[in-house]
Protein backbone atom coordinates (compact mmCIF):
# COMPACT_ATOMS: atom_id res chain seq x y z
CA UNK A 1 0.00 0.00 0.00
CA UNK A 2 3.04 2.26 0.24
CA UNK A 3 3.85 4.80 -2.36
CA UNK A 4 6.85 6.52 -3.76
CA UNK A 5 8.63 9.59 -3.75
CA UNK A 6 7.75 12.40 -1.45
CA UNK A 7 8.46 16.06 -2.13
CA UNK A 8 12.00 16.98 -1.14
CA UNK A 9 10.77 19.27 1.61
CA UNK A 10 8.92 16.64 3.59
CA UNK A 11 9.84 13.38 5.24
CA UNK A 12 8.52 10.13 3.84
CA UNK A 13 6.21 8.29 6.24
CA UNK A 14 7.65 5.25 7.95
CA UNK A 15 4.90 3.05 6.51
CA UNK A 16 6.00 3.99 3.05
CA UNK A 17 9.58 2.93 3.64
CA UNK A 18 8.60 -0.45 5.00
CA UNK A 19 11.70 -0.32 7.18
CA UNK A 20 10.02 0.30 10.49
CA UNK A 21 6.95 -1.88 10.60
CA UNK A 22 5.93 -0.81 14.09
CA UNK A 23 6.90 2.83 13.83
CA UNK A 24 4.33 5.47 14.73
CA UNK A 25 3.21 7.06 11.48
CA UNK A 26 0.69 9.53 12.79
CA UNK A 27 1.21 11.08 16.22
CA UNK A 28 -0.94 13.58 18.10
CA UNK A 29 0.69 15.31 21.06
CA UNK A 30 -1.19 17.46 23.57
CA UNK A 31 -4.00 18.13 21.13
CA UNK A 32 -6.82 20.36 22.36
CA UNK A 33 -9.79 21.59 20.41
CA UNK A 34 -12.84 23.61 21.34
CA UNK A 35 -16.28 23.70 19.77
CA UNK A 36 -17.35 27.23 20.60
CA UNK A 37 -16.71 27.84 24.28
CA UNK A 38 -16.48 24.15 25.21
CA UNK A 39 -13.24 22.19 24.96
CA UNK A 40 -14.03 18.84 23.32
CA UNK A 41 -10.47 17.50 23.16
CA UNK A 42 -8.05 18.11 26.01
CA UNK A 43 -4.31 17.41 25.83
CA UNK A 44 -5.02 14.32 23.81
CA UNK A 45 -2.17 11.91 23.07
CA UNK A 46 -2.36 9.37 20.25
CA UNK A 47 -0.01 7.42 18.03
CA UNK A 48 -0.99 5.23 15.13
CA UNK A 49 1.57 2.69 14.02
CA UNK A 50 2.18 1.21 10.60
CA UNK A 51 0.41 -2.12 10.23
CA UNK A 52 -1.92 -1.42 13.12
CA UNK A 53 -5.70 -1.45 13.19
CA UNK A 54 -6.74 1.03 15.85
CA UNK A 55 -10.35 1.60 16.80
CA UNK A 56 -11.73 4.59 18.64
CA UNK A 57 -15.17 4.68 20.17
CA UNK A 58 -16.97 7.18 22.35
CA UNK A 59 -20.39 8.62 23.02
CA UNK A 60 -22.11 11.04 20.66
CA UNK A 61 -20.50 14.45 20.83
CA UNK A 62 -17.32 13.10 22.42
CA UNK A 63 -15.29 14.68 19.61
CA UNK A 64 -14.43 11.61 17.52
CA UNK A 65 -15.13 13.24 14.16
CA UNK A 66 -13.35 16.42 15.24
CA UNK A 67 -10.33 14.32 16.20
CA UNK A 68 -10.36 12.70 12.77
CA UNK A 69 -10.55 16.13 11.10
CA UNK A 70 -7.53 17.26 13.12
CA UNK A 71 -5.60 14.09 12.28
CA UNK A 72 -6.17 14.57 8.57
CA UNK A 73 -5.15 18.22 8.77
CA UNK A 74 -8.55 19.62 7.86
CA UNK A 75 -8.74 21.69 11.04
CA UNK A 76 -5.93 22.97 13.20
CA UNK A 77 -5.97 22.12 16.91
CA UNK A 78 -6.22 24.96 19.42
CA UNK A 79 -3.15 23.51 21.14
CA UNK A 80 -0.77 20.67 20.49
CA UNK A 81 0.53 19.14 17.31
CA UNK A 82 -0.06 16.30 14.88
CA UNK A 83 2.87 14.84 12.98
CA UNK A 84 3.00 12.56 9.96
CA UNK A 85 6.22 10.55 10.10
CA UNK A 86 7.66 13.14 12.45
CA UNK A 87 6.74 16.15 10.33
CA UNK A 88 4.11 18.57 11.70
CA UNK A 89 1.01 18.52 9.50
CA UNK A 90 1.17 22.27 8.98
CA UNK A 91 4.55 21.79 7.26
CA UNK A 92 3.32 19.02 4.98
CA UNK A 93 2.17 19.99 1.47
CA UNK A 94 -1.56 19.50 0.88
CA UNK A 95 -1.07 17.10 -2.04
CA UNK A 96 1.47 15.05 -0.10
CA UNK A 97 -0.97 14.80 2.77
CA UNK A 98 -3.78 13.78 0.41
CA UNK A 99 -1.53 11.12 -1.11
CA UNK A 100 -0.57 9.67 2.26
CA UNK A 101 -3.72 9.97 4.34
CA UNK A 102 -6.93 8.56 2.87
CA UNK A 103 -10.20 9.28 4.61
CA UNK A 104 -13.69 7.86 4.54
CA UNK A 105 -16.14 10.16 6.24
CA UNK A 106 -19.90 10.43 6.57
CA UNK A 107 -20.15 11.41 2.93
CA UNK A 108 -18.41 8.80 0.78
CA UNK A 109 -16.12 11.15 -1.17
CA UNK A 110 -17.67 10.31 -4.53
CA UNK A 111 -19.33 12.15 -7.38
CA UNK A 112 -22.98 11.12 -7.40
CA UNK A 113 -23.44 11.68 -11.13
CA UNK A 114 -20.46 9.52 -12.09
CA UNK A 115 -20.47 5.74 -12.07
CA UNK A 116 -18.49 3.74 -9.52
CA UNK A 117 -15.84 2.98 -12.13
CA UNK A 118 -15.60 6.61 -13.29
CA UNK A 119 -15.23 7.76 -9.69
CA UNK A 120 -12.37 5.36 -9.02
CA UNK A 121 -10.64 6.24 -12.29
CA UNK A 122 -10.84 9.99 -11.64
CA UNK A 123 -10.06 10.05 -7.94
CA UNK A 124 -7.18 7.57 -8.16
CA UNK A 125 -5.64 9.66 -10.96
CA UNK A 126 -5.77 12.74 -8.76
CA UNK A 127 -3.63 11.03 -6.12
CA UNK A 128 -1.18 9.79 -8.76
CA UNK A 129 -2.38 6.18 -8.58
CA UNK A 130 -4.23 5.90 -11.91
CA UNK A 131 -6.21 2.69 -12.30
CA UNK A 132 -7.13 0.90 -15.48
CA UNK A 133 -10.78 -0.07 -15.93
CA UNK A 134 -9.85 -3.67 -15.10
CA UNK A 135 -8.08 -2.64 -11.91
CA UNK A 136 -10.92 -0.36 -10.84
CA UNK A 137 -13.44 -3.09 -11.59
CA UNK A 138 -11.41 -5.60 -9.57
CA UNK A 139 -11.37 -3.21 -6.60
CA UNK A 140 -15.14 -2.80 -6.77
CA UNK A 141 -15.44 -6.58 -6.89
CA UNK A 142 -13.26 -6.82 -3.78
CA UNK A 143 -15.58 -4.55 -1.82
CA UNK A 144 -18.55 -6.59 -3.02
CA UNK A 145 -20.21 -4.09 -5.33
CA UNK A 146 -22.38 -6.03 -7.80
CA UNK A 147 -20.99 -6.06 -11.35
CA UNK A 148 -24.12 -4.46 -12.80
CA UNK A 149 -23.63 -1.48 -10.46
CA UNK A 150 -20.11 -0.68 -11.67
CA UNK A 151 -21.48 1.28 -14.62
CA UNK A 152 -24.40 2.82 -12.75
CA UNK A 153 -24.39 6.31 -11.34
CA UNK A 154 -23.54 6.48 -7.62
CA UNK A 155 -26.73 8.53 -7.14
CA UNK A 156 -28.69 5.33 -7.72
CA UNK A 157 -26.66 3.29 -5.21
CA UNK A 158 -27.97 2.43 -1.78
CA UNK A 159 -26.15 3.91 1.25
CA UNK A 160 -24.29 0.64 1.73
CA UNK A 161 -23.20 0.52 -1.92
CA UNK A 162 -21.94 4.09 -1.68
CA UNK A 163 -19.99 3.12 1.42
CA UNK A 164 -18.45 0.13 -0.36
CA UNK A 165 -17.43 2.36 -3.28
CA UNK A 166 -16.00 4.90 -0.85
CA UNK A 167 -13.96 2.11 0.71
CA UNK A 168 -12.72 1.10 -2.75
CA UNK A 169 -11.64 4.71 -3.27
CA UNK A 170 -9.62 4.57 -0.06
CA UNK A 171 -8.05 1.28 -1.18
CA UNK A 172 -7.21 2.78 -4.58
CA UNK A 173 -5.44 5.73 -2.98
CA UNK A 174 -2.46 3.63 -1.91
CA UNK A 175 -2.18 5.84 1.18
CA UNK A 176 -0.05 4.81 4.15
CA UNK A 177 -2.67 5.95 6.66
CA UNK A 178 -6.42 5.33 6.53
CA UNK A 179 -8.76 7.40 8.69
CA UNK A 180 -12.26 5.99 8.64
CA UNK A 181 -15.29 7.52 10.32
CA UNK A 182 -17.94 4.87 11.06
CA UNK A 183 -16.92 2.77 8.02
CA UNK A 184 -19.60 0.13 8.63
CA UNK A 185 -22.46 2.65 8.35
CA UNK A 186 -25.11 1.36 5.99
CA UNK A 187 -23.38 -1.97 5.40
CA UNK A 188 -25.28 -5.23 5.56
CA UNK A 189 -23.70 -8.26 7.35
CA UNK A 190 -21.90 -9.33 4.17
CA UNK A 191 -20.65 -5.78 3.72
CA UNK A 192 -19.35 -5.65 7.29
CA UNK A 193 -17.56 -8.92 6.72
CA UNK A 194 -15.97 -7.50 3.57
CA UNK A 195 -14.98 -4.37 5.48
CA UNK A 196 -13.35 -6.47 8.21
CA UNK A 197 -11.40 -8.43 5.60
CA UNK A 198 -10.26 -5.28 3.77
CA UNK A 199 -9.10 -3.59 6.98
CA UNK A 200 -7.29 -6.71 8.16
CA UNK A 201 -5.53 -7.07 4.78
CA UNK A 202 -4.60 -3.39 4.72
CA UNK A 203 -3.08 -3.55 8.19
CA UNK A 204 -1.23 -6.74 7.27
CA UNK A 205 0.21 -4.91 4.27
CA UNK A 206 1.61 -2.19 6.54
CA UNK A 207 -1.12 0.42 6.37
CA UNK A 208 -1.90 2.30 9.57
CA UNK A 209 -5.68 2.08 9.95
CA UNK A 210 -7.59 4.23 12.40
CA UNK A 211 -11.34 3.72 12.46
CA UNK A 212 -14.02 5.32 14.54
CA UNK A 213 -16.58 2.65 15.14
CA UNK A 214 -18.87 0.93 17.61
CA UNK A 215 -19.26 -2.13 15.39
CA UNK A 216 -18.60 -5.26 17.51
CA UNK A 217 -17.13 -7.10 14.52
CA UNK A 218 -14.52 -4.39 14.02
CA UNK A 219 -13.89 -4.09 17.76
CA UNK A 220 -13.08 -7.80 17.84
CA UNK A 221 -10.67 -7.36 14.97
CA UNK A 222 -8.78 -4.32 16.28
CA UNK A 223 -5.22 -4.44 17.56
CA UNK A 224 -6.08 -1.65 19.97
CA UNK A 225 -9.35 -0.15 21.11
CA UNK A 226 -9.41 3.31 22.68
CA UNK A 227 -12.35 5.20 24.07
CA UNK A 228 -12.65 8.95 23.73
CA UNK A 229 -14.00 10.23 27.02
CA UNK A 230 -13.80 13.65 28.67
CA UNK A 231 -11.59 14.90 25.86
CA UNK A 232 -8.94 12.21 26.31
CA UNK A 233 -8.29 8.72 24.99
CA UNK A 234 -8.47 5.82 27.41
CA UNK A 235 -7.80 2.13 26.90
CA UNK A 236 -11.26 0.62 26.40
CA UNK A 237 -12.49 -1.94 28.87
Amino acid sequence: MGRDPAPATVVKPAAATGAQAAAAVLVATGVAWAAGERFVLLDLELSVRAGELLLISGHNGAGKTSLLSILRGAIAPARGQVTLAGVPLEDVAADYLANHIATLQHRPGLYFDLTGLENLALLSSLVNQPLTVTEASALLDRVGLPREAHQRRVRHYSRGMQQRTGLARVMASGAAVWLLDEPSTGLDPAGRETLSRVLRDAAAAGTAVLAISHDPELLALADRHLELRDGRLHEAA
Binding site: D95, A98, Q105, G109, Y111, F112, L123, L126
Partner: peptide, 18 residues
Protein backbone atom coordinates in the same frame (compact mmCIF):
# COMPACT_ATOMS: atom_id res chain seq x y z
CA UNK B 1 -22.77 21.28 -5.87
CA UNK B 2 -21.23 18.01 -7.17
CA UNK B 3 -18.31 18.37 -4.74
CA UNK B 4 -20.56 19.33 -1.83
CA UNK B 5 -23.03 16.54 -2.38
CA UNK B 6 -20.53 13.70 -2.34
CA UNK B 7 -17.90 15.28 -0.11
CA UNK B 8 -15.13 15.45 -2.72
CA UNK B 9 -14.05 19.06 -2.32
CA UNK B 10 -11.02 18.13 -0.20
CA UNK B 11 -10.01 15.44 -2.69
CA UNK B 12 -10.04 17.72 -5.73
CA UNK B 13 -8.50 20.73 -4.04
CA UNK B 14 -5.39 18.95 -2.79
CA UNK B 15 -3.95 17.70 -6.08
CA UNK B 16 -0.29 17.75 -7.00
CA UNK B 17 -0.95 21.01 -8.85
CA UNK B 18 -2.71 22.61 -5.90
Amino acid sequence: APEEEGGTLDLVSSTAAG
